[in-house]
Design a protein around this nucleic acid. Sequence first.
DNA 1: ACCGTTCTAGAATATTCGAAC
DNA 2: TGTTCGAATATTCTAGAACGG
Lengths: 121, 121, 121
Amino acid sequence: MAAEGATDDEVSGFVRSVYTLLRVCDAEIAGWSHDGLQVVIFDPARFASELCPKFFRHRTFQSFTRLLNMYQFHRVPSAQRDSKHVVFAHPNFQRTREDLLPLIQRKSSSACRAPDCGVCQ
Amino acid sequence: MAAEGATDDEVSGFVRSVYTLLRVCDAEIAGWSHDGLQVVIFDPARFASELCPKFFRHRTFQSFTRLLNMYQFHRVPSAQRDSKHVVFAHPNFQRTREDLLPLIQRKSSSACRAPDCGVCQ
Amino acid sequence: MAAEGATDDEVSGFVRSVYTLLRVCDAEIAGWSHDGLQVVIFDPARFASELCPKFFRHRTFQSFTRLLNMYQFHRVPSAQRDSKHVVFAHPNFQRTREDLLPLIQRKSSSACRAPDCGVCQ
DNA sequence: ACCGTTCTAGAATATTCGAAC
DNA sequence: TGTTCGAATATTCTAGAACGG
């Protein structure tokens, strides 16, 4: 199993921040789902105003969401229609599988158009 | 009176809702700018949780923003960067010019009109 | 003299330069924020053309910025959005806490340690 | 077909970083 | 360690797309 050769250094800053955030933050604001497979924001308003400024350079839920999508997290529709909880998940973002974090990659930005670019072609 | 050829029926439902909302809502949550040219949301959190459900079928600021953009409103950066106020404007959305409201049109849905489009039909 | 265990020698040259610069420079060009926690460049153009050559071996604001980032200073968005002031901060860079300066360390160059790396040798 | 709601992505700018020298 | 330049990442605002009424 398990991503040998995948050290912490390879985890992107954003992913590392979210993982840390979930470990240290007030359990009333955000946390892992019971199975440890989903990120649950229990209180988006407090998350934006209190947590975002501590871990990022902004204080909006939208900016947080934008980066989650950039890293291919997907929103999970909550069962309770009126719930204010916001749930996100990524197959390689799991509470007990820190070793998988390096697999989470940011989507490539606007594709390189250089005619001789060996990477993007 | 009234902008001949421009009756209320011609004002889109969303634009009418926003105009009404600004007339009746708590002045601490939202209102017109002093010059009557801008929509100011003083408290986005309360706006989303209290006002949105009354005027729309959702309770998120993002959904409100999405429609504003659809109707070509644009966000106005506030001078104070750390301000929580959110400001939007549209050249034909003015407090004293209700007659201009019919001019505000929703962007055409990017509907595919190709007669043989297998996706959109 | 000299705070035992934390002599001037332990403060990196760049950090020392910035600290000195703020003490001696024209108050119209740069200085401390009122609370003494932030570095404020009031006039980036004059800072680059007049101060940089005196304290460093260049005359560009970007080079100054590059080193600030290298030492983990972060840019702070100025309150006034249209302000030309540029603000940086580092938790251990404070006007009244010269004793903390040695704690400011340059980021480890991400030197490649792979024994067989043909690029870095 | 049009409009509204939701989730995701594009685009422009701002900020930070990698790497060669 | 410092300087330079190009690239990657972050933040903001707007738009695309799928779906439902």
